[in-house]
Design a protein around this nucleic acid. Structure first.
Lengths: 194, 194
DNA sequence: CGCAGGTGTTACCGCCGGTAACACTGGGGC
DNA sequence: GCCCCAGTGTTACCGGCGGTAACACCTGCG
């Protein structure tokens, strides 16, 4: 049986760590050979562990998205009124992408590393589902209500896009951005524009 | 002088048309050789016209983004109160991506065709700037006001993300989606959630 | 000892983006 | 008539990539 081998998972972890290092250094155009070299081994070993390039990138992306999703779930399900929870969740998201911008760029924009996109899409989907359930619960709608789904999709994109802009321009503090986005969700634009 | 050659621009257009056809057939993994074959010529000619692959993809993307941006500007600057104009602009965007979903996917998700991303980013930026100016004007803020900028970034992402979801799931009519998104912008969620 | 299985390697394939170098053609000057 | 030249097209190649087949090495076990 192959699954009980001693260092198999540990090995896999070390390979992922090496891949992570290379990806963060070379942008996402890192080649499999380079990653293998960084790990001190050769290509076929990588392929035995991850199948192909998108397998590796997916594994790489999954670690980060899982962590992020956990943090967001915690922020969203902790106590308080709706506005407080939403505000806290947006703040959590922004804090994470601020703390590790390279990781964020790798996941979301990557410029070249499209193989991970499947995993990232999956993450966004899970996040959207989470939000849909939250909104539906909040508004006492059926769990698959259309409005909840649409709004969840919109809100995810809104925060992501604003986070993108913020990481690039850094034109305000994280707290300010969090406030503005929460305001926007609570209709500040509509009120101001009439 | 080379610029007065007879069919130069026409030729370029025909090459773009061929590229467009191949991209829409092969997804965005279309190779330069395949595109050249579709156009009835060989690779070096493509390279003489577009420099490199990202040049071709950029030219391809530009046609579509320019058209789309024009349509959005028209929708946004036509008359009416703020809410009507926003509603109409969102509807215009959704109508365009509904009419040409393959084009939209090529531009925005592409799975493989990252070379066009520069152009697409440029488009999103121009769109965001446009919106920023609109919001600032509407709210009588300075043109580079922070709130206007943040909101514009968020709104762009919100509509794009919701449009994405809609194209994939088609779970409601375009008119419904437009209404829900406008409602969201005008604070329907905040009101309902308290 | 032989041998099985897992780890590692080298050496290769096919494809792609990109380019150098060469062939063809048509129109001006002499 | 002739040559030159600019522009159009081609073939044939390069380097690098993702991916794989085939072989070498160790280690435990009957």
């Amino acid at each position: 049986m192959t699954s009980v081998l001693p260092g198999r998972d540990a090995r896999r972890e070390s390979l992922l760590a090496a891949a992570d290092a290379v990806v963060q250094r070379d942008g996402a155009s890192a080649s499999m050979a380079t990653i293998a070299a960084e790990a001190g081994i050769t290509k076929p070993i990588l392929y035995r562990h991850f199948g192909d390039k998108s397998g590796l990138y997916a594994a790489l992306a999954e670690r980060h998205t899982d962590r992020l999703l956990d943090a967001l779930v915690d922020a969203l399900t902790a106590g308080g009124p709706a506005r407080v929870r939403v505000h806290r969740t947006i703040g959590t998201y922004l804090a994470v992408i601020e703390a590790e911008p390279q990781v964020y760029r790798f996941l979301m924009q990557s410029e070249e590393a499209v193989p991970a996109q499947g995993t990232v899409r999956g993450f966004l989907h899970r996040l959207q589902d989470l939000l849909t359930a939250g909104i539906a619960h909040e508004l006492r709608l059926p769990a698959d209500d259309l409005r909840a789904t649409v709004w969840a999709a919109g809100i995810v994109g809104m925060v992501q896009s604003a986070g993108d802009w913020w990481l690039e321009s850094r034109r305000c503090s994280r707290a300010d951005l969090t406030d503005q986005l929460t305001d926007l969700l609570w209709g500040a634009y509509g009120v101001a524009a009439g």
